[in-house]
Amino acid sequence: MTFWVTQALNGISFGMLLFLLAAGLSLIYGLMRMLNLAHGSYYILGGYVGLAAVRVTGSFVLAAVAATATVTLVGIVMERFFLRRFPEQELPQALLTFGFLLIFADLSLWLWGGTPQTLPKPEIFERSIRIGAIVFPTYRLFVIAIGLVVGLGLWWLQEGTRLGAMIRAGVDDAEMARATGVNVGLLSTAVFAFGAFLAGLGGIIGGPFVGVYPGADFEILEMALVVVIIGGLGSLKGAFVGGLVVGLLDNFGKALFPELALFTVFAPMAVILALRPTGLFGAR
């Protein structure tokens, strides 16, 4: 019993982290038909900048602000000055974002070295709680809470606000949206920046338990891609459900069949690709 509850909570907390990353990837693809391969870099940039800020200020909140602000800015610069030059050209965009991935990877290795780092947790979440025989770190519960809050916020943004309506219009038909007076260019920058913000937030939230290290950018990108493939590209609901599915599969896979750890994540993805190429909630 303890085993199942602990593993389920672990899986959900990892799933929430994946949701933060996949949501941005999915939104950006939905609106701009662009697969941002540098998305994993935003994760490690968020983590490393957060770590540097924690060391200077000693405050997790200030570090979160610094990390997300930096990564958001990086996202804006990438979209405005680079990706904007190749509208709707998938191959140049993919190559460009891949180039950014490599540059950020080398830059982080140079600045922060090769040793994996773990962010210190905020002090109030240093402890573990005990319910009966189950002991669980409060920090992971905090991660679950953050994931739920962000998920609800995004749902409200998309369904209940004018901005959300514009994004949905842009996703469905960019040209028609433009014709009705939506500034799709500005909207694209905003969505791209917001996606980067979520990934940067992922970096600082994941930093204390997954850590930041050279290569995490690729690993996180890979997992986020599996999430959007399972959930469906362009769908927030898909990113949320996909994140949970992958988080739980990954965790129970490692716990029950450690030899098949990767298989338990990628096999369901392959099955979904075969049966429903658009993913669980994908529109197209």
Partner: peptide, 12 residues
């Protein structure tokens, strides 16, 4: 080697 998270192993 380099497992990002040891939680699934420790819980076993």
């Amino acid at each position: 080697l380099g497992a990002p998270d040891f939680a699934p192993y420790l819980a076993q």
